[in-house]
C-alpha cells in the first residue's frame, strides 16, 4: 500500500513531459495537501503553466506532447487508469489569465456547466447559480442583473464570474493560471481574498508571476526553473529563508 494514500489531493511522481523532443518538465515529484493554496512561481518558460495543465490534461490538446510518470488526483492516476477525461475534469475547475466569459447572460454563464452535466431543474439551477455567485463574492453586485450580458461586467467582475462558473459544478480542485495579472489592484485584492476563502472548500493551485501575490495567498510555494522543481516548501519559509540559492536569486530579483 502506498504510504501517501489518502493523504494528498494532488500528486505527481517522476513526471516528465516533452514537447516533441524538447523536455519541458523533468522528473517532478510533488505532494499537494487538500484545502491548501499552492503557488507555482518561476521565470517564463520554466514549466509552471505546463505543469499546472497536467492536472486537467489540457496538454493532451497540444500536438507532439508526451508524458511519463504519474499524475494523481485523489490517488487516481489520471493518465493511466483509463479514466473518463470528461468525468474527472468535473473535479478540476480552471481559471485563466484573461477573463473569458461566454457571450451570454450572467446567469447562463454560471449555469452553463450544470446544463452540460444534464441539470434541467429550474430551481436547482437557480439555487446553484446563486450559491456559486455568493461563493465567488459577486452575488451582491449582480443579483439584480442576472439576465444582463456577462460582457458588460468589469474585468474584475468577469474574472469572479469565471470563478463562479468554475465552482458551480462543484469541483474539488481549482487551477488558476495568473488569475489576477490582467486586473487592477482593487480587483486583484478581491480575487486574492476570494482565493483565501475558497481554500476551505477547494484545493487551489495558482500560477503567478507576482511574487507578492504568491506570498500573500499561498500556504506552500513551488519554485520551478528550466523544467525542474527546485524547491517546494511553506511559503513563509520560501520568502524568508529559502533553502536553495536558485530560489533566493529568483525571488530577490538577482536571477539571470
Amino acid at each position: 500500500m502506498d504510504s501517501n494514500y489518502g493523504t494528498y489531493k494532488l500528486r505527481t511522481r517522476h513526471l516528465n513531459l516533452f514537447y516533441s523532443t524538447k523536455q519541458a518538465l523533468k522528473d517532478i515529484t510533488i505532494n499537494i495537501s487538500p484545502n491548501t493554496v499552492t503557488a507555482f512561481i518561476g521565470p517564463s518558460g520554466c514549466g509552471k503553466s505546463t505543469f499546472l495543465r497536467c492536472f486537467n490534461r489540457m496538454n493532451d490538446l497540444i500536438e507532439g506532447v508526451t508524458i511519463d510518470g504519474e499524475v494523481l488526483i485523489d490517488d487516481v492516476d489520471i493518465y493511466k487508469n483509463m479514466v473518463d477525461v470528461h468525468e474527472y475534469r468535473k473535479k478540476v475547475g480552471m481559471v485563466f489569465q484573461k477573463p473569458n466569459p461566454f457571450p451570454k447572460s450572467i446567469f447562463e454563464n454560471v449555469a452553463f456547466g450544470l446544463r452540460i452535466n444534464g441539470e434541467r431543474s429550474k430551481t436547482v439551477l437557480e439555487e446553484s447559480v446563486e450559491a456559486a455567485l455568493k461563493q465567488a463574492a459577486l452575488w451582491e453586485e449582480v443579483k439584480d442583473s442576472l439576465n444582463k450580458s456577462a460582457l458588460a461586467l468589469s474585468g474584475g467582475q468577469q474574472q469572479r464570474l469565471c470563478i463562479a462558473r468554475a465552482i458551480a459544478v462543484k469541483p474539488s480542485v481549482l487551477l488558476m493560471d495568473e488569475p489576477a495579472s490582467a486586473l487592477d489592484p482593487i480587483s486583484t485584492a478581491k480575487i486574492e481574498e476570494l482565493i483565501y476563502q475558497l481554500k476551505h472548500s477547494f484545493t487551489i493551485v495558482i500560477v503567478t508571476h507576482n511574487m507578492q501575490q504568491a506570498a500573500r495567498v499561498s500556504d506552500k510555494t513551488a519554485f520551478f526553473f528550466m523544467g525542474e522543481l527546485i524547491e517546494f516548501d511553506k511559503t513563509d519559509k520560501i520568502f524568508t529563508n529559502p533553502s536553495e540559492d536558485a530560489t533566493q536569486n529568483y525571488i530577490t530579483g538577482r536571477f539571470g
Partner: peptide
C-alpha cells in the same frame, strides 16, 4: 521594493 529572503532579513 518588498524585499524577501536575505534582503528582507
Amino acid at each position: 521594493f518588498n524585499p524577501v529572503a536575505i534582503d528582507l532579513r
